[in-house]
Structures are given as structure tokens and as C-alpha cells.
Write a protein that binds this DNA or RNA. Structure first.
Lengths: 184, 184
DNA sequence: GGCGACGTATACCGATCGTTCTATCTATTG
DNA sequence: CAATAGATAGAACGATCGGTATACGTCGCC
């Protein structure tokens, strides 16, 4: 019955609160939500910046992409398109608040904030994910195609913040189909 | 030789500083940059929120899209593609900091901040712009196509914050061509 | 001349920010 | 048992936040 340690509780609280209120949430709010002593935060993460960065690193959102694709079978085309079907569902939820990585990258104007490296690493992992699918699919330029998919995903997540009713994921899905039509 | 009034100076200072440091810049920094008395801000805009909102409303970035398209001639296809050529140039500039509208929408988690309405209005104006082009072009679904272009643009601006070297605008341009190939 | 609107300058407000500190409690380990 | 490491609780730090108040100066206009 032992609840997770202070470190894990801090990461979860930070993940929830930064998604809901942005990276500018106060440390006090995070501590309260995590039910953790002030000191533990600085012990484990060195400060707020470290906690934010580690939160992004630990989020492991790319695993969810993998999961969505695995649920769509083996065909790379089905697997990639399933991502946009999932995005349409996610972006129309009332709790949707945009992409936490993009939001963090935009909000943290200090160029050498440790979070920026985590965002870059995340998006490059995603790129590798789609590059593999496109290569299996027989796409002539898997790298370029992967960048196209990434642009579509970021576009959906960004646009849905302002106009979720426009269903940007459906618009993007049609373009993804065009990307997938290039093969051989 | 008279310099612009306090209102105009505030708008320009706020525009510069919010783009460079996000909407969380301090009021003091804006006042200092604008060389304006504290009181004038609250006289003209009622508060920081009003200034931020009015800054977005006044920015008139959609006029720049029009300008780029007008420089590309009359053919709707050339005009739309010119936007992505311009985006490639803009997003690789060292001063590029992302889309100010998307950034504001993500950073202001208070759902009824007056800035949100300005962002929505801006993106809907943009949609109308592209819808007109696509209709002239003979696109079968100008509204849907315009949403696709908007997703591409937001995707480019969002992705370029993290990976400008990937030239997302070029990846998007290829997809825009596919959108424009649908006609009749 | 005198009025009122506008602009400036600066002091000040309470609140919150991220961080450091001291002190106490608890659990494991030798 | 004693020793130590980790966690908790909470006060306090200086800095900054957005916003208000006071006082003074400068215009245009009737």
C-alpha cells in the first residue's frame, strides 16, 4: 500500500499541473499537489528547472504513439493513419490543452533551459519512429516523409488549441494519406 | 518629428517583448521599453491583459500573408506556395521565436483571457484568405483545403521552434502542392 | 485666465515567485 | 542501541509580479 516516493509524486504532480496551467505554475502548487516537502524538490531535481526538464523526459509520450500504432496492426499505412484518428479524438476532448512539448519550448524563452534538450530529443525520437514505418512502407524518402508527418502532428496539436471544432486531425489525415501514397 | 503617442509606443514595445520573452514579460519591462508612464498603460488598455489582447489584434500579421501572396502574381497556386517559401526563410532566421498567436494561446491558461478571442479571430481571417485562393483555384472543397493549409502553417511554425534545421516549411510545401493538385 | 484631459514620475500595496534555512521526525542499517 | 540518511514542516529570504495612489507638469480649448 506504500505510495510512490517523493520523487515520483513530484514528477506526476508537475506533469499534471504544467499541462493544465503551463510551465509557469508555482512551485508551491506542485508541492501541495504532490504532498511533498519543499526540500525534497531541491534534493532530487536541484530546482524547478530540473523538475520541469525531468518531467518532460519521463513523460514518455512517444510510447503512446507506439501503442496507438500497435493497436492498428502491421501495415505501416494503417499504423500511421491510426495516429491521426487518435489525434482527432484527443484534440476534441475538453481537457485537451495542446502539446506539452511545444508549449514548454515556446514558454521557456531562456535559450539554455534544460527542457529544450528534452523537447528536441522527444521530437527526434518521434521522427525515428515514423521514419521506420515509412521505410517499411517503401517510401522513397523516409526521412523527408517523417518530417512531413511531424509537421502534420505539430500542426494538428497547435491548431486544435485555437480551433478544435475545425477537426484539424481530419484535415491532416488526408494529407498523411498523400504522403503515404508515395512509394516505390 | 513627434514620436508616436504612448498608446502606440506601448503596443510596439509589447509586441517586441512578448515575442521575444513570451506573454509573461513583466509590465515594468514593457513600460521601460516604451518609455511610458505606468499610468498610461492602465488608462489606455485597462491592464496588462488588455494590452496583450490589443497587441495581437493590432499586429495584423494576416496583412503580411497577403503581401507575400501579392508578390507572387495572380495564380492561386503560386500565391499559396509562396507562403511556404517565405516561411522557410522566416523560420530559419536566428530571431525566429515561433508563432506569437499560438504561443499566446498556449501560455494563457486562463480560458477567458481576452487574447484568446483575438487569436481565434486571426486564424479565422487566415482561413478566409486561403479559402478564397482555393476557390479561385477550383478546389472542390475550399473550406477543407483552407483548414489543411492552416494545419501546415501552424505545424511549420511550431516544429521550427524545436528543429529549424529540419526545414519544416519545405516538407510542408510539398504537402501544400498535393492539396493544390486537387481541382475540378 | 482657467479649466480639464493627458502624460510623467515615483512611491507603495499585497501577493507570489523560486530558493535557502533550521528544526524535527522516521526509517534503515551497522 | 546508536548512527545516519531521507523526508517533513514551516519560517524566512530577496526579488518581482500586476495594480493603485499621489503629486507634478504640460498641453489644447472654451
Amino acid at each position: 500500500m506504500s505510495r510512490p516516493g517523493p520523487r515520483e509524486r513530484l514528477l506526476e504532480a508537475a506533469s499534471d499541473l504544467t499541462y493544465e496551467h503551463g510551465v509557469h505554475v508555482g512551485v508551491d502548487a506542485i508541492l501541495k499537489r504532490a504532498d511533498v516537502a519543499r526540500r525534497s524538490l531541491y534534493q532530487h531535481f536541484g530546482g524547478k528547472d530540473g523538475l520541469i526538464a525531468e518531467t518532460l523526459a519521463t513523460a514518455g509520450l512517444d510510447a503512446r504513439y507506439r501503442q496507438v500504432m500497435d493497436g492498428a496492426g502491421d501495415d505501416p499505412r494503417d499504423r500511421v493513419l491510426a495516429v491521426f484518428d487518435a489525434l482527432d479524438e484527443i484534440t476534441t476532448r475538453p481537457t485537451f490543452r495542446g502539446c506539452r512539448y511545444t508549449a514548454a519550448d515556446l514558454a521557456l524563452t531562456d535559450r539554455d533551459h534544460p527542457a529544450h534538450a528534452e523537447v528536441r530529443a522527444y521530437k527526434e525520437r518521434l521522427r525515428g519512429l515514423f521514419e521506420d514505418e515509412l521505410r517499411r512502407h517503401g517510401h522513397p524518402e523516409p526521412g523527408f516523409g517523417a518530417d512531413q508527418i511531424l509537421v502534420l502532428i505539430d500542426g494538428v496539436l497547435a491548431h486544435a488549441v485555437t480551433r478544435p471544432g475545425a477537426h484539424p486531425a481530419r484535415a491532416a489525415r488526408a494529407m498523411a494519406e498523400a504522403v503515404l501514397d508515395r512509394r516505390g
